[in-house]
């Protein structure tokens, strides 16, 4: 189990690095697909089969196909150079890098902090599968946030259509 986890984690990290370091954009998108598949395997390892399949279905099979579409259709040659303050990028990078570092440190501190080993995550009632559990938490426990998120997506979609549609 542990070996499988660390192997997968290593693959995920390596693929993530490849995504950002590959020159060819189409190759980068493919590494991203492989990355998502490895994450799905991680979910299987955690016995969250439903989440794993949804990960493959939605991300690897749906969203990234659209990425690929865009990458293949859009001409990716570098545009004409515009003058940007070269130090601006450095400052932004420093800011974002610092924020991510702080987050990591916080997670590490939280993870190593001594904790009373309280109630283990509620064990699944026998005969209740993954799908039922996800269904209960999405449509009963967290119904309002779920619906709000879906409305947000709908608004974004309508906004994109309005922006893309030219006046006749």
């Amino acid at each position: 189990m542990t070996i499988a986890f660390y192997t997968l984690a290593a693959f995920i990290l390596a693929l993530g690095v490849l995504v950002v370091s590959t020159k060819n954009t189409v190759h980068a998108v493919l590494f991203l697909v492989a990355n998502f598949l490895c994450v799905a395997m991680l979910y299987v390892l955690l016995q969250a089969e439903f989440l794993a399949v949804i990960q493959v279905l939605v991300y690897a099979g749906g969203i990234v196909v659209l990425y690929l579409f865009v990458v293949m259709l859009v001409n990716l040659k570098r545009g004409p150079e515009t003058h940007v303050d070269p130090r601006r990028r450095d400052r932004m990078g420093l800011l974002i890098g610092g924020a991510v570092l702080a987050e990591f440190v916080a997670i590490l501190l939280y993870g190593f902090a001594p904790r009373a080993t309280g109630a283990a995550p509620a064990a699944a009632a026998p005969g209740v599968g993954n799908v039922e559990q996800v269904g209960w938490s999405l449509y009963v426990d967290y119904l309002v946030p779920f619906e709000v998120a879906s409305i947000l997506l709908l608004v974004a979609m309508i906004g994109a259509i309005v922006l893309a549609k030219k006046e006749p």
Binding site: L30, V33, E49, F50, V53, I54, V56, L57, A60, G61, G62, V65, L68, F69, M72, G129, N130, V131
Partner: peptide, 19 residues
């Protein structure tokens, strides 16, 4: 136990070969 979703997920991966 999530058979149909697996099927659906793998089918959606088939697009990559063609693209």
């Amino acid at each position: 136990n999530v058979g149909i979703l697996v099927l659906f997920a793998i089918t959606s991966m088939g697009i990559y070969g063609i693209v």
